[in-house]
Amino acid sequence: MSGAPVLAPLVEPVAQLSREEVTRYARHLSLPEVGEIGQRRLRGARVLVIGAGGLGAPVLQYLGAAGIGHISVIDDDRVETSNLQRQILHRDADVGRPKVESARDALVRLDPHLSVEAIDDRLTPDNALSLFAAHDLVIDGADNFATRYLSNDAAELTDTPLVWGTIFRFEGQVSTFVPGHGPMLRDLFPDIPDADSVPSCAEGGVLGVLCGLVGSTMAAEAIKLICGIGEPLIGRLLRCDVLTTAFTTLRFSADPDRRAVTDLAEVTAACAAPAVTAAPPVAEATVAEVRDGSGGAVIVDVRESWERQIVSIPGSVHVPLAAIVASGWPALAEAVGGAADIVLHCRSGVRSATALEAAAPGAPAGVRLRSLAGGIEAWTAAAADDQQP
């Protein structure tokens, strides 16, 4: 140990294990640090997992396999084909289903005696406090800043331990926050960042196996807290880089000048703020305007070639973002053939806004450059609406 707070086990044990449970958890029972009493604590635990995606999937799998008595999972997303590369709790047959329903079914297949509540909803200031208070521990696998800070504040207000993790590209972070026993997320990162200050995994990518590494670490933190064993990551931030196989630990302490969390007012405002798809304002074209076709705009796809293989806008030309950022307007000039009205698009509007900023300074007078609002996601949604009876 290195001076970390010694915590009592988080959960009281159930009365006994069944014969089947003794067999199922035999490898845990052989561990002196866990043993029968620890396994009975796991069976008595109630854990809330926020998110059934990249981090939530491995967390749910390992907590379900470990014998957690009750797991609630909250997520309002649906399974997509692009999720399957890393969210291995879900199967191809689950595409289109609510993630929480797919996750519940997967956990019950793993352990028919496991109690699972699937909450097809988003964590909000309206439900956070009651959900946190109803569970012994919360694991935050959310993919946005507002929800992460909502989790922190709800944990502080309800005195609920919180295990936190993030992933991006090849790097991950994990820490554990126990109110009254160490620093919290706001001691480490005091202010809620802007929603678009870091690209999403959809925009920036993520190595699938990183999710398993970070999610398994988060599950291990939960097990340690429930059983009262080991040294949880309280006051420590674990950082991993799978490209270099480097693991580092940053120690941090509570900020004595930080105001205590007394309500959810700040995170309520952050959760209510509309999502921002492009940092500085840029000229935009709506899907309706472009689909109308009356302006004769040339549509330029700034995504990668492999993305166009999944779906593309008919008639669009391809000029990758990297080329436009490197060369500016000349990268577009040859592809658009002297067009005076050009609409750039990507998946959601973030990269096309960046491309517009790079190309606009060199564009000739009279050339109209716009970014497609909502990107190809908005385009395909509009096309799907047209096909509805």
Rank of each mutant, 00 (worst) to 15 (best):
M1V: 11
P5I: 14
L7C: 05
A15L: 10
Q16G: 06
E20H: 09
T23S: 08
Y25V: 02
A26C: 11
P32V: 11
Q39Y: 02
R40T: 04
L42M: 05
A45K: 01
L48W: 03
I50L: 14
A52L: 08
G54F: 03
Q61I: 08
Y62R: 02
L63C: 05
G64Y: 03
A65M: 06
H70E: 10
I71C: 04
S72A: 15
V79T: 03
E80C: 14
E80Q: 13
T81M: 15
S82V: 03
L84C: 12
R86T: 01
Q87V: 05
G96P: 07
P98L: 08
A106H: 06
R109V: 07
R109L: 14
D111P: 04
E117K: 07
A118W: 01
D120I: 07
D120K: 04
L123E: 05
L123G: 04
T124R: 15
L129D: 03
L131D: 02
I139Y: 09
D140A: 12
N144M: 11
Y149T: 06
L150M: 12
A155C: 07
D159V: 04
P161T: 02
I167E: 03
G182E: 14
P183E: 13
L188K: 08
P190Y: 08
D196L: 15
A202D: 12
G204V: 00
G208D: 10
V209M: 15
L213C: 06
T217Y: 01
E221A: 10
A222F: 08
I226H: 02
L238Y: 02
V242C: 13
R251N: 09
S253H: 15
S253L: 08
V261H: 05
A265C: 06
E266S: 14
E266M: 11
T268C: 10
A275F: 08
V276P: 01
A278P: 00
A279C: 02
V282Q: 05
A288Y: 00
G296L: 07
I299H: 05
V300W: 05
D301E: 10
V311G: 00
S312L: 09
S316N: 05
S316H: 03
S327P: 00
G328I: 10
E334C: 04
V336E: 02
H345F: 09
R347N: 05
R347M: 10
S348I: 03
R351A: 08
S352D: 01
A355F: 04
G362V: 10
V367S: 07
S371L: 09
G375K: 11
I376V: 14
A382G: 01
A383L: 12
D385F: 00
Q388W: 02
